[in-house]
Nucleic acid binder design. Structure first.
Lengths: 189, 189, 189, 189
DNA sequence: TATGAATGAGTATTCATTCAT
DNA sequence: TATGAATGAATACTCATTCAT
């Protein structure tokens, strides 16, 4: 009953994600979003009460996607697990753009936005925890070096995710190259 | 003659840089800038004709600063030179935030902005060229591995600059840690 | 320094008061207000951050005006004082329109509005307190009847203020007529 | 035939009346109305073509209700009749809120609204006429004073209706208290 | 008939930029 | 030159009303 929908919520969030990544959170306007969707700007308000809710929902969706994938990773061997996780994260590379922006969302006007942002940050913490555990286990196992602080290695590991894929390789291949470099180093001995 | 200066151009650009880094280019407003300067918002227009010119001038200034420092690096030994360059870049870590934003500046309204942005991109290319040369020499010299594409190693090297200094170490020390990791890898053999 | 003001804050609040009385609080728009002032709608925001602040400032101003006048009333003889107070209130008859609306103001977005509304309600309480005291004294003195609850007499007294001046008499004269009626009744014996 | 009614016209008008009284005419929205009814906002348009018609119908209904009750009042004794009328009006106290708002309805878009508003104003005039007649008879009879203009007494009489029932007494009792005061005055002699 | 959805016109608010002192 | 003030264009959001199922 009622008219046919001009676009699904799914489409809305996908476009929004794309635009936030392209323009940053503060460069993200509903006018812009509307221009990438069929239908009128005001139609968007049928789904979300304000800009903040859209951004928050967007981030939550991306985060959940990543979390689910990360859940499938077999953690028996920590090094292998890290390698798999890197692949997952690189497929969801946008996440990193979001993370910084999540805290920029003005959450004071909308309960829903507040909750979603909260959940995003919680999930983020969870992911970091998973990584920390793997690093810890790897170090105890003797498969990563112990002469440097874990946080330096973890920090660099996180940076891998953002490394622009200049060669335009398929994400998996690119991820594996970077992992090799991170693990073995760029030096020749 | 006339009133005393409310603030110098120097101060203006410094604050602008800080704010662009903090809020991203699209989150950067003249109202915000004025609130971080003594004097009135309209006074800013005594120095620059519009927002875009400010951003462009800002970036150019940071770029020149980096270029000068990079010029002092002794390039005799490519590996040592890379290490030194990393230090330089990390002192100017903000540069990276700028790089993405440089292309976001709407350059169509202002000749000056257009020119500055052009120069910034040229200098950036120059820096990349310097790096590429060093990588090339290092590879020929046999001090970095040859089994992986240079661009992967260079890409990762560039990412080092952005790695958040989670331990709050002095930049030099942090830079050296990262360089070691990049060169030797995180793995233990 | 700077341009000449298009209108004073005084003028702004006066027009706003007039319009709120005419259209009620929810019928009060900044577009409407701007159309009754020289200059552009956006200029209003130089003085007040939002609609709510304007309404709140408006009410406070009217309230203070009334309070000052009420302060001059000689309270030696309670009946005479009530008569004088009625004159004051009728000159400020708009107050009553405001009182209901004060609670409608959405105070959650603006500290200033919240404070002003708070002060308005406090001043209102003060005025009611002054009246209650006078009624009490009059009753003890035996000048108003004791066989009916004070609150009925006070309630009716308050209603006098809103009685439309259908004969278009000068406010003082009108007030005195009504006071006579309130005190002596409409009946003939 | 078709779906079962989501709500009756009766319910619609009752809710509308409540909301107009609560929020004033300009604060009355169809969105608000819909949220107080089962069924969808658009269903309202099955009954009325626009907001103005609803408000007008609402007022007419309340007016007719009052008129019918007023018709039952025995007018033999004018004073007694006034007392009865006050009871009637106080049961329909909302009327007064409407009266001011009736003129605010934008009647230019809807014939029906225009007609209803016209009828409301006519009925109002009729009621005033009824009152005026009673006042006149009472004065001639010598039961209300002649030293003050009728319109002042009538004006105050009308105000009685709006007097907030601060003691929360049953309407009849409250009405009688007020009538006594209006007739005998608040003074003690 | 009831309704979910679409929409356009209206209001609130912000901000870069221009004016006039 | 510095600046307080003015302003218009842009965006956020709301709501009455219309459509299509």
């Amino acid at each position: 009953m009622g008219r046919k929908r001009a676009f699904t919520e799914e489409e809305l969030l996908d476009k929004a994600e794309m635009l936030i990544i392209q323009h940053g959170y503060s460069g993200f306007h509903l006018k812009l979003l509307a221009s990438h969707l069929p239908g009128a700007r005001s139609t968007i308000y049928q789904y979300y009460a304000n800009k903040e809710e859209i951004a928050a929902a967007c981030m939550k969706k991306a985060m959940v996607r990543a979390l689910i994938k990360a859940g499938y990773v077999d953690e028996t061997d920590p090094i292998e697990a890290l390698k798999q996780l890197l692949r997952v994260y690189m497929e969801e590379a946008d996440l990193h753009y979001f993370l910084g922006d999540a805290r920029k969302i003005d959450v004071s006007q909308s309960k829903k936005a507040e909750q979603n942002v909260g959940e995003v940050l919680a999930m983020l913490k969870h992911l970091r925890g998973q990584l920390d555990l793997l690093f810890d286990r790897a170090q105890k196992q003797g498969t990563i070096r112990s002469d440097l602080p874990i946080s330096v290695m973890a920090g660099l590991f996180f940076q891998l995710i953002n490394t622009p894929n200049t060669l335009q390789l398929p994400p998996h291949e690119w991820a594996d190259y970077l992992f090799t470099l991170w693990y073995e180093g760029s030096g020749a001995y």
